[in-house]
């Protein structure tokens, strides 16, 4: 371990578990789309499996007086249901399964990532972009379906004089279009940075321990790593919450485009 340099980004590497094949392309290396079952896919499946098993099995008894597991399932249900109701309105409850799925997926994927040697699904941009695009497309499609062209009112705040509108409308449009970018990068960046920093401090402990008498100093980065682990648990839950809240806020715009 001490001979190899500690690589903070090694943990994000995607490795194949089995290959499914290459589709399209002309047969030369690098052409076509390669599909494989990877460690990332494995952890997506584990995440979904854990959420499904937990929520379904814990509430299977349908007890009026819940046990601990059922209480946790009910609390997560109520938590997201209240969030959707308060932020997106009662009409937004039709998107409750989507917000709930997103929240639970991010939360469990993030928490899975806190286990050493486990892969963090949300540390890959493509996954967070995919989730942000689900939300963005839902907002756009539902917004136009429900409001028609009135959806464009979203970009025109009411009660503002025309000269100011000339400045405000482009800003509103840009801010709307940049939502999926910030939405996805926020989650990706937080998880990626947190894991890299953890790894860097962990690597410092190992490197210092290999440096003879100076090994005593390793206590400092070790303490940092411990503290950061706690922080990362907070970030894991907080980012899932933030993603879900922003989803609700964006859905609110689709339902009520007028400011």
């Amino acid at each position: 371990m001490s001979e190899k340099p500690i690589e903070p980004i090694h943990q994000f590497r995607i490795t194949e578990i089995f290959n499914i094949g290459t589709f399209g392309g002309d047969g030369t290396a690098g052409s076509g789309v390669n599909i494989a079952f990877t460690n990332s896919a494995l952890f997506m499946v584990l995440t979904v499996g854990l959420i499904g098993a937990f929520l379904i099995l814990s509430s299977n008894r349908r007890a009026i007086i819940p046990n601990r597991m059922q209480l946790m399932a009910e609390m997560s249900y109520e938590f997201i249901a209240n969030m959707v109701r308060n932020t997106a309105g009662t009409e937004g409850m039709k998107f409750f399964p989507m917000v709930f799925s997103l929240f639970m997926f991010i939360l469990v994927a993030n928490l899975f990532g806190m286990f050493p040697y486990f892969f963090t699904v949300t540390s890959h941009l493509i996954v967070t972009v995919a989730m942000a695009m689900i939300v963005f497309l839902t907002v756009v499609i539902y917004g136009f379906m429900k409001n028609g062209l009135k959806f464009f009112k979203l970009f025109v705040p009411s009660g503002i004089p025309v000269p100011v509108l000339l400045i405000v409308v482009p800003i509103e449009i840009i801010s709307f279009l940049s939502r999926p970018i910030s939405h996805s990068l926020r989650l990706f960046g937080n998880i990626l940075a947190g894991h890299i920093v953890l790894k860097v401090f962990g690597g410092m402990v190992v490197a210092l321990l290999g440096a003879g008498a100076w090994g005593v100093v390793a206590v400092l980065p070790l303490g940092m790593a411990v503290a950061l682990t706690g922080l990362e648990f907070l970030v894991a839950a907080l980012q899932a919450f933030v993603f879900a809240v922003l989803t609700c806020v964006y859905l609110h715009d689709a339902i009520h485009p007028g400011h």
Partner: peptide, 28 residues
């Protein structure tokens, strides 16, 4: 790796969504 990740994400999230909207959430 994007194609694989997108595919598996779509599958996993699709299954999760169906599980949540059809089974877990109505039950709870």
């Amino acid at each position: 790796t994007f194609a694989s990740q997108l595919l598996w994400f779509a599958l996993a999230f699709g299954v999760l969504y169906v599980l949540m909207s059809r089974v877990a959430l109505p039950q709870i």
